[in-house]
Design a protein around this nucleic acid. Structure first.
Lengths: 228, 228
DNA sequence: TCCGGACCAAGTGTCGACAATCATGACATC
DNA sequence: GATGTCATGATTGTCGACACTTGGTCCGGA
């Protein structure tokens, strides 16, 4: 778990602010700190056994990753997950990951492509035998997207997606159960993207990736419409 | 000038950290603080007449906007503008602003489209009579892109582009002279995008916007190749 | 009973100071 | 003469404390 997060193994980072930043982020993403709840500086400082100085710096970093909202003299709150913002994120992912797939098709190493296909092979086995383990399938979904983005080699692209949007996506997924009835379809779409990349067809890879993310967004839209 | 920056008129923001964040950012973008130079906390704190506490928070925000790099116990430095990263930014802009143009074509209000056309009319007059005023043309270029992005109505999209990438672009532009021999071509491309939006043709607007940004990137690539 | 103003408490914003870490230079040794 | 080591200085990381703002509450009056 938490396998696909950039800089996830940053234990023993020299500065306290960075460490508590990662801890609070994880707590927010996984729902231990509920969405919309107020983040009291003294309380958090006491909870993590640090002073308010480093904690404020961590809060600033959390603010810039759009996980918390701050208003002057009023304090910080965990962001409230609105449905519109979730859909907005998928729009951005469609644009960014589509471009990532295009570049990955041009620049990804053969070895990385082999690894990618191996990952999909493993996912196929998991999906075939386990319908109740959609959780791992969902984590695997992020793993797949993570590798494509890495394959683009565009550092800023990697940064935006892996350090901001993927944490948001994981937060939404932990919040609502996100029982995906789309696991089989998504896997099929992943394989199509991987094939296009293996054939070095950047244009097709981008088109397929965008269609894949669009389909995911539509599935969410349908589910939100039903729940309403 | 500095017309197209989000939250630009944030004078008298209650918190000092936010104010000095904007000031330092402007100083970095406009080159008053040279690229690659070290940012000493005591020096900056003294320069702005504040303590190191708020300054450190401002530095954290600057770090998250990718304008400065920090390494623990080693201090912060202004980012060094590498050519590769500049091109990476254009790749992201191509993906993101293409999507913004598509959505803007669907959602932009008629009034906003009229304003956009008025802006282009003004740009046309400027370009026609002034070849030495490419500076204003370049600022106007950002203004155009800014309005398209705003027209998308996607808050996170607006945030990424206006609060991060555009400042980077302005920094590069202030750093090297960025004498653009492409002003006329760029204006023409802008008008095509605006026309597609006016006709509510999202697919075409995206295609044109991506081609426009790609052309700008290629112009930069050519210039970098010559200077080398 | 309802509205308005003042008081109070909690929390945020800011500051100065101490401890830990790293760079720089001189010095001793091989 | 070159290299490794150590001391020194400066800078960063962290902490506790103070001032100011905000929100709630209580009291008084209509």
């Amino acid at each position: 778990m938490t396998s696909a997060t950039a800089e996830s193994l940053d234990e023993e980072t020299s500065t306290i602010a960075d460490r508590v930043f990662g801890q609070v982020r994880q707590a927010i993403v996984e729902g231990q700190i509920p969405a919309g709840s107020k983040l009291s500086e003294p309380a958090l400082a006491a909870r993590y056994g640090i002073s308010r100085g480093p904690l404020r710096e961590a809060m600033r970093r959390l603010e810039s990753t759009n996980l918390v909202e701050r208003r002057p003299n009023l304090g910080a709150r965990v962001i409230t997950l609105s449905n519109d913002e979730l859909l907005e994120i998928y729009v951005i992912r469609e644009a960014l990951e589509g471009m990532a797939a295009r570049i990955a098709a041009e620049r990804m190493s053969d070895a990385a492509i082999s690894d990618l296909k191996g990952l999909l092979e493993q996912h196929r086995r998991e999906v075939a035998r386990a319908d109740w383990q959609t959780y791992f399938q969902e984590e695997g979904d992020l793993d797949f997207h993570f590798r494509i983005v890495q394959g683009s080699g565009n550092r800023r692209l990697i940064d935006i997606l892996c350090n901001d949007l993927y944490h948001l996506a994981r937060m939404y997924r932990c919040q609502f159960g996100m029982k995906s009835d789309r696991a089989a379809d998504a896997l099929k779409e992943h394989e199509l993207v991987a094939d296009a990349i293996a054939e070095r067809d950047g244009e097709l890879a981008e088109w397929l990736m965008r269609r894949h993310i669009r389909a995911s967004r539509r599935a969410i839209e349908r589910r939100l419409a039903v729940e309403r």
